[in-house]
């Protein structure tokens, strides 16, 4: 790795100030993407700013009114061990246990997964399905961006120079709601999704009153498909309705062929994975909660 300086600011204003004065700085949370990219020369840095000493970026907090706040640097192993997340967001526990393996989960954060903005990011389709927003801090203050608008191209996102992600905010789960993320990989663990699908469903008297669907690995960014969820509104969660929504998601995908699968294979998988994710989300919504 090329030489760089290291800073570990203890507060958000200090971090924002450092970022403003150091145009070629890179932010370090878990380092599971950044250090690989720096070592291989894909990215450069004069200064690496470690954000893990900033209290707001290390916070997990849940309350039934405001929902869940996950600090941008909270590593996956803390998410999977958190009692509130286990009981209110089981799909988040699953996704946090699927990103890399045990050691990667000891470092990697959902904030880092979001900011790395890979088309294949495992957590992003679920965050989109859950209606998450990204809280950003920068020289002009704070702003929020829906996660479904955060990524703009492979490895690119809405963070402007001098800005950093503070936290991910997820609304409190509605009564009779459920969510799921499923991915297709040829192995059992430790792999990049050929196709990933996130879904959330809310039921009112057995009828779907809200639904959101998103995909990964089938477009230049994780892909929110509003029309797929909207097609389910005021429907019973029948096999036909879920299948129809999955077809809409499939139509929205624009996959490429690469070493993990052909475009045609991925397109086929889109419908399968979205249908299964919706089925699991519905099953969870039907459990007493």
């Amino acid at each position: 790795m090329k030489a760089f300086d290291y800073a570990a600011p203890a507060s958000l204003p200090e971090a924002v100030g450092l970022l403003a004065s150091q145009p070629s700085a890179r932010l370090l949370a878990g380092g599971t993407d950044l250090l690989v990219q720096l070592r291989s020369g894909r990215k450069d840095a004069d200064v690496v700013i470690d954000v893990k000493k900033i209290p707001e970026l290390n916070e997990i907090s849940f309350n039934p009114a405001d929902g869940l706040t996950i600090g941008a640097a909270v590593p996956c192993y803390r998410l999977t061990a958190d009692a509130a997340i286990q009981s209110h967001y089981p799909a988040l526990v699953e996704v946090a246990s699927w990103i890399g393996g045990t050691q990667i989960q000891g470092r990697a954060s959902l904030g880092g997964n979001l900011c790395n903005s890979a088309p294949s990011a495992d957590s992003i389709p679920l965050l989109i399905a859950l209606g998450a927003t990204a809280l950003i801090a920068g020289p002009a203050g704070r702003r929020s961006v829906p996660v479904d608008e955060f990524c703009t191209a492979p490895g690119r996102n809405q963070l402007a120079p001098g800005e950093l992600l503070v936290s991910i905010q997820i609304p409190a789960p509605a009564p009779f709601s459920g969510a799921a993320y499923l991915r297709f990989i040829p192995r059992n663990e430790m792999d990049i999704a050929v196709v990933g699908a996130g879904a959330s469903v809310t039921l009112s008297n057995g009828v779907i009153s809200a639904a959101r669907v998103a995909l990964s690995s089938v477009a230049p960014t994780p892909l929110f498909v509003p029309a797929a969820g909207e097609s389910l509104l005021n429907q019973m969660p029948t096999a036909e309705a879920l299948e129809a929504a999955a077809k809409i998601a499939q139509e929205a995908a624009s996959p490429i062929s690469d070493m993990r699968g052909t475009a045609a294979y991925r397109r086929h998988l889109c419908a399968v994975m979205v249908r299964r994710a919706l089925e699991l989300a519905v099953a969870r919504a039907q459990e007493i909660n």
Binding site: Y6, L28, G30, K52, I104, G106
Partner: peptide, 26 residues
């Protein structure tokens, strides 16, 4: 050297990590 193989695993605080993906200063 990129976090896949686990041969550099150490315990850091209350969890295990691949030490190739941790800076010494951390």
């Amino acid at each position: 050297g990129d976090g896949n193989c686990g041969s550099c695993t150490v315990k850091l605080g209350d969890r295990i990590v691949t030490s190739c993906l941790v800076l010494g200063v951390e």
